[in-house]
Design a protein around this nucleic acid. Structure first.
Length: 324
DNA sequence: CATCAGGGCCCTG
DNA sequence: CAGGGCCCTGAT
């Protein structure tokens, strides 16, 4: 495989809207590890497919939660111009919610009996999505109907075979293939990589992306319910994958309507201190308590336990559910 | 050894 | 609307 060397570099300073929690926003400990990004405390590297090109983006935290400041480096394989740089910054701002105003969320719930402690620990955390819609959909397919270990294995083998390897700032990582490429791959070639029946999904959804000219920039301007309707039309996208895409890629934060069985167990522990509470009850509870902020609220509750785990706390019941 | 379910989804009856 | 099948793998 050919590695793209991104040797042209530019640097800009950006000031996200406070409060902005850099670490908790760029890195999500609940996500499975893969080769598409690199995280170190206060630093984050990822490839960005944008307008037909691949760029390398590096974010460095130069501020605090209350006085956020981020240095944003762009790496490319050809010289950069002002307009291009500005457009990439706008895109990264969208993906990492630099300009979202969450002050109302904090004000409203910092003394909330349930949510308060979570907000205290993760204050300024937002949703993020380093991927474009197509990339995140690929992740969604890797997640379907399997355990995390196998998801990781499938992702890595597919990236090594079909991904675009990029190198910048002395880091190497993979960017997902383009749908135009994947739609032409014979199903048998994918089956060899042990992705099972997902082989068909990768090819079919790629064809859909190309033929229907699915454009996430158009979707972003539509109301949530419209986006959801469009996403569910894609073969292989059901309620859970749509939820992932809506929350992460489209930054939808007001509607909480679906929990997968795995999440159901974890929310049952965290919110009800019980082994298994009916999914419907969990959904109602979260939506009722935190209304137009329900998704963001659930995100705080969700990520918190994984941060504790990352920071070395042993949580027996959680380990059983993760099974890495 | 066999059987089963897993961070779903589609299709069928 | 319930239930079976799908790839593969580790757990039982």
């Amino acid at each position: 495989m050919k590695t793209s060397e991104l040797k042209y570099k530019s640097s800009q300073m950006v000031w996200p809207k406070a409060p902005y929690n850099f670490g908790a926003t760029v890195f999500k400990p609940s996500h499975y590890p893969d080769l598409t990004k690199v995280y170190e405390p206060d630093k984050y590297w990822f490839p960005l497919r944008f307008r037909g090109g691949i760029y390398g983006v590096k974010l460095i935290n130069r501020g605090t939660v209350n006085k956020p400041k981020i240095q944003l480096f762009i790496f490319s394989n050809k010289p950069q111009n002002k307009k291009g740089i500005q457009d990439i910054i706008t895109e990264v701002s969208y993906r990492f919610e630099f300009n979202h105003d969450i002050s109302e969320f904090n004000k409203k719930f910092k003394k909330d009996k349930v949510l308060g402690p979570f907000i205290k620990r993760l204050r300024g955390m937002r949703m993020n999505c380093a991927y474009d819609l197509y990339g995140l959909l690929m992740i969604g397919i890797f997640l379907q109907n399997t355990v995390v270990r196998r998801t990781v294995q499938m992702t890595n083998s597919m990236l090594s075979e079909y991904g675009a390897k990029v190198r910048f700032d002395n880091k190497e990582m993979f960017c997902f293939w383009k749908p135009e490429e994947m739609m032409k791959v014979p199903e048998q070639d994918l089956r060899v990589l042990k992705v099972g029946y997902r082989a068909k999904l990768f090819i079919k959804t790629s064809k859909t992306f190309v033929k229907e000219k699915i454009d996430e920039f158009v979707l972003r301007r539509m109301p949530r319910e419209e986006i959801k309707k469009e996403l569910l039309k894609i073969y292989g996208v059901g309620p859970e994958t749509a939820r992932i895409l809506l929350e992460e890629c489209f930054h939808s934060r007001g509607v909480f309507e679906h929990v997968a069985p795995w999440q159901q167990k974890i929310y049952s522990h965290l919110l009800f201190n019980k082994k298994l509470v009916p999914a419907k009850k969990i959904v109602r509870y979260i939506q009722k308590n935190w209304g137009e902020w329900a998704t963001l609220a659930s995100h705080y509750i969700w990520e918190d336990i994984f941060w504790q785990r990352k920071n070395g706390k042993k949580i027996e019941w959680l380990e059983r559910e993760i099974r890495l």
